[in-house]
């Protein structure tokens, strides 16, 4: 049994399957912040796109009012055609039993430059470290892998790459690996 046209299946809107709790969570965010865009509400997965100026306020609101208390992962995605880099924080909750299954993805975008000089160009974002201390190492990783400098992070040092790494950040799309 082959999956017929996979693209078609993936495109089906499953917001109808999402529970009331999911909807109420996303509603409370969009009610408070008018600029925030709710990208999708799938079962147990919500994605919120915010402007980078607003991210600290939204994150504080999510932590204080919606009880999400830690970050599961922070992934940076490079979009060269939009000239933007996106950083997605996946937030979860340990303390609130009703939110056990939920993952709230908080995404924001920052401009991207073709000749990156990590730390010294416009690719900057406010750090969420004061709101969620658990993002601290993830943000360090994001800084070296995509060159997104986190303003307010006290420890924006190199983490995984060798000390003498002088190339552009490796997870950018214009970093091609040899022979590919």
């Amino acid at each position: 049994m082959s999956s017929t046209d996979s693209t078609e299946i993936a495109k089906t809107d499953d917001s109808s399957l999402a529970s009331d709790l999911d909807k109420s969570l996303s509603d409370s965010i969009s009610k408070k912040f008018s600029n925030v865009e709710i990208a999708y509400v799938k079962p147990d997965r919500i994605r919120v796109n915010v402007k980078k100026e607003e991210i600290i306020d939204v994150a504080s609101f999510i932590r204080d009012e919606l009880n999400f208390d830690h970050a599961e992962s922070v992934s940076g995605v490079d979009y060269p055609e939009d000239k933007q880099i996106e950083v997605v924080y996946h937030l979860g909750s340990y303390t609130d039993a009703s939110l056990d299954k939920k993952i709230l993805a908080l995404a924001t975008r920052t401009p991207r430059e073709d000749n990156p000089r990590p730390g010294n160009d416009s690719t900057k974002l406010p750090s969420l470290r004061d709101v969620f201390p658990s993002v601290s190492f993830h943000e360090r990783e994001c800084f070296e892998m995509l060159g997104v400098y986190f303003v307010g992070h006290p420890d924006n040092r190199r983490l995984l790459l060798p000390e003498d790494w002088a190339d552009i950040p490796p997870l950018r799309k214009d970093f091609r690996i040899k022979g590919r």
Binding site: M1, S2, S3, E8, K11, R45, E72, S73, I103, A105
Partner: peptide
């Protein structure tokens, strides 16, 4: 096992599973 087409393609979306 479900048989797959060679080189299956995903849609324009994202998933997070744990």
């Amino acid at each position: 096992r479900v048989k797959l087409k060679p080189k299956p393609k995903g849609g324009d979306t994202e998933v997070y599973r744990r």
